[in-house]
Amino acid sequence: MTHAQSAGNILRRSGISAAMTKPPTGMGRGSCAYGLILASGHLPVALQLLQKTSLPLAGVYDMLPGGGWREVLL
């Protein structure tokens, strides 16, 4: 989960609030298996920030009403 923690720190330093979460198995493919929840409005800036690092990004998902997830194609 260290990668998610480092990513969260990077976002927070830029004023983007990000909460750690443990997503369902399979969503964290090839990554540290933890995710960050942030407001969708911050997504473009967050992606820009994280793409400047070597931190792996397994995917981006929308939280659906009722608890489901839908992958956002980048």
Binding site: T2, H3, G26, G28, G30, C32, P56
Partner: peptide
């Protein structure tokens, strides 16, 4: 705790 579907040890640090 990471990459649990994969039986090979992760190659990234610190895992």
């Amino acid at each position: 705790g990471s990459d649990s579907l994969e039986v090979r040890q992760p190659e990234y640090l610190p895992d």
